[in-house]
Amino acid sequence: MICPLIISERGVYMDKEELKKIIYEMVEKSMGKKKLKQSDILKKVSAEHGVDKSEVKAALRELLDSGQLIFTYFGGSYVEIPPKE
Protein backbone atom coordinates (compact mmCIF):
# COMPACT_ATOMS: atom_id res chain seq x y z
CA MET A 1 0.00 0.00 0.00
CA ILE A 2 1.28 3.46 -0.86
CA CYS A 3 1.09 5.88 2.07
CA PRO A 4 -0.32 9.28 1.13
CA LEU A 5 2.17 12.11 1.63
CA ILE A 6 1.11 15.45 3.02
CA ILE A 7 2.92 18.62 1.98
CA SER A 8 3.03 21.03 4.88
CA GLU A 9 2.83 24.81 4.60
CA ARG A 10 6.57 24.89 5.21
CA GLY A 11 7.09 22.50 2.35
CA VAL A 12 7.84 19.58 4.67
CA TYR A 13 6.65 16.21 3.43
CA MET A 14 4.74 14.33 6.06
CA ASP A 15 3.44 10.83 5.78
CA LYS A 16 -0.23 10.58 6.83
CA GLU A 17 0.60 7.70 9.15
CA GLU A 18 3.29 9.85 10.74
CA LEU A 19 0.74 12.59 11.30
CA LYS A 20 -1.65 10.11 12.91
CA LYS A 21 1.18 8.97 15.18
CA ILE A 22 1.90 12.56 16.23
CA ILE A 23 -1.78 13.13 17.04
CA TYR A 24 -2.09 9.87 18.95
CA GLU A 25 1.02 10.61 21.01
CA MET A 26 -0.24 14.08 21.79
CA VAL A 27 -3.51 12.70 23.11
CA GLU A 28 -1.67 9.96 25.00
CA LYS A 29 0.66 12.46 26.68
CA SER A 30 -2.18 14.66 27.81
CA MET A 31 -4.21 11.82 29.34
CA GLY A 32 -4.78 12.44 33.04
CA LYS A 33 -3.44 15.98 32.74
CA LYS A 34 -5.62 17.92 30.33
CA LYS A 35 -8.55 16.84 28.22
CA LEU A 36 -8.06 17.90 24.61
CA LYS A 37 -10.82 19.16 22.36
CA GLN A 38 -10.60 18.50 18.64
CA SER A 39 -9.79 22.17 18.03
CA ASP A 40 -6.88 22.01 20.53
CA ILE A 41 -5.36 19.16 18.52
CA LEU A 42 -5.85 20.86 15.16
CA LYS A 43 -4.32 24.11 16.38
CA LYS A 44 -1.36 22.53 18.16
CA VAL A 45 -0.35 20.01 15.50
CA SER A 46 -0.80 22.58 12.76
CA ALA A 47 1.33 25.14 14.61
CA GLU A 48 4.07 22.73 15.67
CA HIS A 49 4.44 20.81 12.40
CA GLY A 50 3.35 23.36 9.83
CA VAL A 51 0.66 21.08 8.44
CA ASP A 52 -2.64 22.50 7.25
CA LYS A 53 -5.50 22.12 9.73
CA SER A 54 -7.61 20.28 7.17
CA GLU A 55 -4.91 17.60 6.87
CA VAL A 56 -4.69 17.24 10.65
CA LYS A 57 -8.47 16.95 10.71
CA ALA A 58 -8.42 14.20 8.08
CA ALA A 59 -5.78 12.24 10.00
CA LEU A 60 -7.68 12.67 13.26
CA ARG A 61 -10.83 11.49 11.58
CA GLU A 62 -9.12 8.26 10.53
CA LEU A 63 -8.03 7.69 14.12
CA LEU A 64 -11.61 8.25 15.32
CA ASP A 65 -13.16 6.10 12.59
CA SER A 66 -10.80 3.24 13.38
CA GLY A 67 -11.58 3.46 17.10
CA GLN A 68 -7.97 4.24 18.11
CA LEU A 69 -9.30 7.50 19.55
CA ILE A 70 -12.80 8.23 20.78
CA PHE A 71 -14.93 11.19 21.69
CA THR A 72 -15.89 11.56 25.34
CA TYR A 73 -18.24 13.99 27.02
CA PHE A 74 -17.58 15.70 30.33
CA GLY A 75 -19.54 18.95 30.15
CA GLY A 76 -17.97 19.40 26.70
CA SER A 77 -16.69 17.00 24.03
CA TYR A 78 -13.10 15.78 24.12
CA VAL A 79 -10.85 13.39 22.20
CA GLU A 80 -9.32 10.60 24.26
CA ILE A 81 -7.82 7.13 24.04
CA PRO A 82 -10.43 4.44 24.70
CA PRO A 83 -10.06 2.57 27.99
CA LYS A 84 -8.47 -0.87 27.77
CA GLU A 85 -11.11 -3.60 28.10
Binding site: L64, G67, I70, F71, T72, Y73, F74, G75
Partner: peptide
Protein backbone atom coordinates in the same frame (compact mmCIF):
# COMPACT_ATOMS: atom_id res chain seq x y z
CA UNK B 1 -24.18 11.79 33.00
CA UNK B 2 -21.53 11.75 30.28
CA UNK B 3 -18.36 9.66 29.89
CA UNK B 4 -17.65 7.56 26.84
CA UNK B 5 -20.41 8.10 24.38
CA UNK B 6 -21.24 7.59 20.76
CA UNK B 7 -20.84 4.99 18.12
CA UNK B 8 -17.61 4.45 16.24
CA UNK B 9 -16.53 7.55 14.33
CA UNK B 10 -19.31 9.70 15.76
CA UNK B 11 -18.85 11.89 18.82
CA UNK B 12 -22.43 13.05 18.94
CA UNK B 13 -25.90 11.59 19.02
CA UNK B 14 -25.61 9.44 22.14
CA UNK B 15 -25.80 10.84 25.65
CA UNK B 16 -24.29 8.51 28.23
Amino acid sequence: HGGIVGVRGYGAGVIG
